[in-house]
Design a protein around this nucleic acid. Sequence first.
RNA 1: GGCGCAUUAGUCUAGUUGGCCUAGGACGCCGCCCUCUCAAGGCGGAGAUCGCGGGUUCGAAUCCCGCAUGCGCUACCA
Length: 500
Amino acid sequence: MPGAVISLSAKFSGGVVERSPALRLRFAPSPTGYLHVGGARTALFNWLLARRHGGSFILRIEDTDLSRSTEEAIEAIIRDMRWLGLDWDEGPEVGGEHWPYRQTGRVNLYRRAAEELMRKGAAYRCFCLPEELAERREKALKEGKSPMYDRRCRRIPWEESRDMAKDGKPFAIRFAVPEGETVVRDLVRGEVRFRNQEIEDFVLLRNDGSPTYNLAVVVDDLDMRITHVVRGDDHLPNTPKQILLYRALEAEEPAFAHLPMIVGRDGKPLSKRHGDVAVGSFRERGFLPDAMVNFLALLGWSLDDSTTIMDRDTLVAGFALERVSSKPAVWDDEKLVWMNSQYIMAMDDQALAQALMPFLAQAGLAEEGDPGALERMRRISPLVRERIKTLTDAVPLVAFFFREVEAEEDARELLRGEESRAVLRETGKRLLELESFDAAALEESMRAMADEMGVKPRKAFQPVRAAVSGSRVSPPLFESMEILGRETCLRRIARSLEEN
RNA sequence: GGCGCAUUAGUCUAGUUGGCCUAGGACGCCGCCCUCUCAAGGCGGAGAUCGCGGGUUCGAAUCCCGCAUGCGCUACCA
């Protein structure tokens, strides 16, 4: 079955075989903050495509803007990528022949490319000061004119330009946009045409010698032999500039695919204003990486008309760019929560218990590495699995298994009253008499008790639930009591009778 | 202002070359069943004149044109 890459390579790069190790994709975040879900989705699509076709997935840190980039951000991005299970074949902590996989330390490459472009007459020095530029732009805008750079420095004769540079006049290097039309053959939206006259002579190298994004990204993608650039569609208008650069450098351009943005319910790009958008905060809120990946994959892509829950193998096997939508996807927290619950329900006892341990530890209910606590949690797992949608949901639900809890006020109400007290006393008696303290025996005994006392099961069980769990909502009563053990149950029932 | 992209129910989406769409699946919502609480599960339901207006056609969500709205880009940000 031919995948997206076949048709696209046949069309745009001239024949790459299906399982092509030559396929090279990258995710290139700028480390100015945490990894947010939009970035994660972009990373995922790149990863999926690489894995689908047996190619390489590269992580590259786009830190051209040094003042806004931080080491902490880099570490956080790496941590979150790892958590999501998006492993890379080349990049930070992994290595590769294009080390370092960040732009600091690669400045010479950019400078050399800019010089090459100057030599070819495709770029020129611009001596305009940033302040002048801003002024002119504002003026043009006010007069209703196009605010594009007027290309005045393009007309400075080469020798004069060289001399001005030699005299120490600061300059930036701009790309000389040629005449004509540039067509972006986008894998998700088809051909998009741009008239070159709409593209200004953009800056390649700032007057401090640092590269701008457009230059750096092209040089890096070229150097790393990236075959497919898959990124957010906010980059679509930049693409003709980059294509022009590839051509000026006499290099073959990669295939491009622009993914729809992820927006909030208000249709605006997803941001902090919409709540937590950091991948890390979803981890802290108790979401599972597999659920995140499944959910993220469905933001702008679908396998068919009905499949929603998919494991990684299915995702990898079925992913294709041609099934990527071009309309913005709205982030729907509720659906994520539901999906997470589906993944939780699919976990076995051991896995769920293990996943829960850090959350129990954080709540002070258990020590992270305590084997006794883990074993206890493993026994509790089947009781809570269907009752939690996120891992954090489990904490209040299981707390009474790990420590004495004060009964909530609405639970105390269940403990008062003659009937309730009678039920509790009788229950205590029966618990002592039980031969085997297991759920089945407990249920049998207590149902018989309710029957004999002429009390509805519900009326008989609720006070016991309140006494034992401290709440009117808890995991199934008899199973819970079995795990708590006879002594604990008796103690709690006795205490309830005393205190209420 | 210019350029570009998008527009199927509250939401994610299916609908690739026009007829099998009296628009399919999922989340959410409502109701019933099950039931020791809460869930889970089962069954059923409401919800879309496919942004609007023209056109092409025997036939359009699907093709063409215009409009509207939203978003992006238009930086010596990425």
